[in-house]
Each structure stands twice: as structure tokens, then as C-alpha cells.
């Protein structure tokens, strides 16, 4: 494919902190290579702003190879931009052409308050994990991995669910700002393996409760999360979470735990 350079107009959300209200600011960047990633294009913008003595745009990033889940931009109405199964750091500028205008917003959900500009606080995800996304193990030497036989399909499904990188694109994409896909991935990879059994009766109930307490919306099976998830987490996991949830409600121990 032919390499090319382009000039772009950027409309970027600027916000001082979670207390103040933000607004869009327009920038021009020039000579952007089609071979750059979207984040590299933002690096160019920020160097330009620093050179002009202005405040650079704050945005989250870490690995820049699609595995950490930090890069959280909503680009022209799409979480992580228009490519499917893709993070912002993996989006490349060959998607755009000279003269394009690109609108960049932070993840928008009340449970993800804006810290600054495009950076949002996703610690609500951590608190959902703390509510039940863990297992009890004996300390000491690690057990031989082959000691517990696990059916192949089961292992594959658990692995696919464990691929969730906690990026929050599902929440950003969901019209209800629900975190159901994230929670279902975290419940699923434990529910499918024997190591997840000790907390099984309380896990789904406690995690869904925490999700509600954090102010996420409720799932109405719209499916925009699955369409935008960079790791291809399937809606089947939500069906499994629903089964696990009913199971942990009926068992009663989750409800007792709540009353204590």
C-alpha cells in the first residue's frame, strides 16, 4: 500500500478534572504519516502544543500493542475507532485521508468519571473484581498444572473469556453504560475452571451487585459491547453470567453474605 502524509483537523475533548465541565477544542496537525498509529499522531499533536507553550492533551496509554487496555479514546463515535477487535494504539492513520476531521472524546459513563481530558477513572472495574473476581488457593509451591484434568472446550472457553483486558470499551459502547460484558468475562473464566468453585455461590451475585453500586446501567441485550470489544469477548458469557447469577441467588449464601 502507498504511504502518504496528511493534514488533519482534530476536535478533542478538554476537561480540567471531574468537577469542571469540559468542551471541545480544535487543533490542526500536519504531515501525519499513514504509517503512524493513532496514539503517535497524538504524540505529534502534544509535541506541537508543548512547543507552543500550551498544555498537552492528557490521554491514557501504556503497552501500545493492544494488551494493556489503557488507551481509551472514543473516535468519531466509536470506542477505539472504526476497526473491529482493535484498540486505539492498534488503529493506524491509513484509515484517514488528507483533510479529515476527527472527533475524539473520552469514555462517557457516570461510573467512569473524567480525570483530565481523555483520561477516565476506571477504578470501578477494580472494585467489581474485589467483590468476587478472585479465587482461594493454598499458598506454597504451585501445583503441577496437569494435576487437574480440564475438558478442552471448557479450557478454550475459559481462555477466551480471560482475554478481557479491562479496557472498558464495552461500557463506552453500551447505550446503557452497562459493564455486563466485562463482568461476564471475569465471572466466566473462573466459572469454567475447577479453581473457581470455592466462591462460586457468591461470585456472580456480589460482582453484579458491585456493578450496580458503581452506577453502571443494566444490560438489555443490545450487543454493542460485543461489536466493540477489542478481544472478541462473546455475548455467550453474559448468558453464562445470568445462569451463574440465578444459581448464586438461589443458593442463598450470597444473600446471607450481603445481610452480614
Amino acid at each position: 500500500m502507498q504511504h502518504y502524509n496528511m493534514n488533519l483537523n482534530l476536535k478533542v475533548w478538554r476537561q480540567k478534572n471531574s468537577k469542571t465541565s469540559g468542551a471541545f477544542e480544535t487543533f490542526k496537525v500536519s504531515n501525519i504519516s499513514s504509517e503512524m498509529s493513532f496514539l503517535e499522531m497524538f504524540d505529534v499533536l502534544n509535541e506541537q502544543l508543548v512547543a507552543e507553550g500550551k498544555e498537552p492533551v492528557a490521554f491514557d496509554h501504556d503497552c501500545r500493542e493492544g494488551i494493556c487496555g489503557m488507551c481509551s479514546m472514543h473516535i468519531n463515535g466509536r470506542a477505539h475507532g472504526p476497526w473491529s477487535k482493535n484498540t486505539t494504539c492498534q488503529l493506524h492513520m491509513r484509515e484517514y485521508k488528507d483533510g479529515d476531521t476527527i472527533v475524539v472524546e473520552p469514555w462517557r459513563a457516570d461510573a467512569f468519571p473524567v480525570i483530565k481530558d481523555l483520561v477516565v477513572d476506571r477504578s470501578s472495574f477494580d472494585r467489581i473484581i474485589q467483590a468476587g473476581g478472585y479465587i482461594s488457593v493454598n499458598t506454597g509451591n504451585a501445583q503441577d498444572a496437569n494435576a487437574l484434568p480440564i475438558e478442552k472446550q471448557q479450557a478454550d472457553d475459559a481462555f477466551a473469556a480471560a482475554a478481557c483486558i479491562g479496557c472498558g470499551a464495552c461500557v463506552a459502547a453500551c447505550p446503557n453504560a452497562s459493564a455486563m460484558l466485562f463482568v461476564s468475562a471475569k465471572v466466566s473464566h473462573l466459572a469454567l475452571l475447577p479453581q473457581g468453585d470455592p466462591e462460586r455461590k457468591t461470585r456472580a451475585f456480589n460482582m453484579v451487585n458491585q456493578m450496580d453500586a458503581e452506577g453502571f446501567g443494566s444490560c438489555t441485550n443490545i450487543g454493542a459491547c460485543e461489536a466493540e470489544c477489542p478481544k472478541g469477548i462473546s455475548l455467550e458469557n453474559i448468558a453464562r453470567l445470568n445462569r451463574e447469577y440465578v444459581g448464586s441467588m438461589l443458593s442463598g449464601s450470597a444473600v446471607e453474605g450481603l445481610q452480614q
Binding site: K11, F24, H74, N76, G77, R78, A79, V103, E105, R108, A173, P175, I222, G223, A224, A227, E228
Partner: peptide, 10 residues
């Protein structure tokens, strides 16, 4: 959102 996905994702 100022720009939303509309029918592109659901």
C-alpha cells in the same frame, strides 16, 4: 457523546 455509533454497532 457528541458523536455516537448509532446503528454501526447495534
Amino acid at each position: 457523546y457528541a458523536v455516537s455509533a448509532g446503528s454501526a454497532t447495534s
